[in-house]
């Protein structure tokens, strides 16, 4: 048979010689191999103290963005929910009323915005679909939780801190994520 590579080796079925049958030499060889591993560099990363750097294209937990004045960017158009292949996003729209201009940038806003992190596959299609730059995938991953309910992230979990009123919280959040 024609082999694809020249790496293939025929199985050697010759009876073992006396020294091979003693096994001692091979045992000593094996022990030297394991001994040499004592001096090898350990690839372990001690997690909470050391962290592996995320790649620049890493897609983690979602955040809902605000604009410079601290208003929510989301206008509840539903494009992200449509784009979502896992159907993880649901939302309810509401109309901005008089006196809420400092809270919501558009005339329509998301009264409820939920992402089920158990369904989400972190593909980033919602991020691409959003016309208002409202939803982004950050560089953190969903922490463990005791209940399924805990994995359904609502607006309070997703919204970034207000840059006007909670500037320090935003800075720390960015610092952690960076």
């Amino acid at each position: 048979m024609q082999t694809l590579t020249n790496k293939a080796q025929a199985v050697n079925r010759a009876p073992m010689s006396f020294w091979e049958r003693l096994y001692l030499i091979n045992i000593i060889k094996g022990m030297l191999i394991t001994f040499s591993h004592m001096f090898k560099k350990q690839p372990t990363i001690h997690y909470p103290e050391q962290k592996r750097e995320f790649s620049p294209v890493f897609r983690g937990l979602h955040v809902l963005n605000r604009d410079e004045e601290g208003r929510e960017r989301c206008t509840a158009c539903g494009l992200c929910a449509v784009a979502c292949p896992a159907e993880a996003i649901t939302m309810e729209a509401a109309e901005r009323i008089e006196g809420e201009e400092h809270l919501y940038r558009e005339e329509k806003y998301a009264a409820k915005y939920e992402i089920n992190m158990l369904r989400c596959i972190f593909c980033g299609l919602c991020e691409e679909a959003c016309p208002k730059d409202a939803v982004y995938l950050s560089e953190t991953f969903a922490p463990a939780n005791y209940t399924r309910k805990g994995f359904i992230y609502g607006k309070p979990d997703l919204l970034i801190p207000n840059p006007k009123t909670e500037a320090t919280a935003l800075a720390t959040a960015k610092g952690v994520e960076a």
Binding site: M38, Q42, P43, T44, H46
Partner: peptide
């Protein structure tokens, strides 16, 4: 652990 390139209990 050391023989297997791990840190072991730490």
């Amino acid at each position: 652990a050391i023989l297997q390139d791990r840190p072991g209990p730490s």
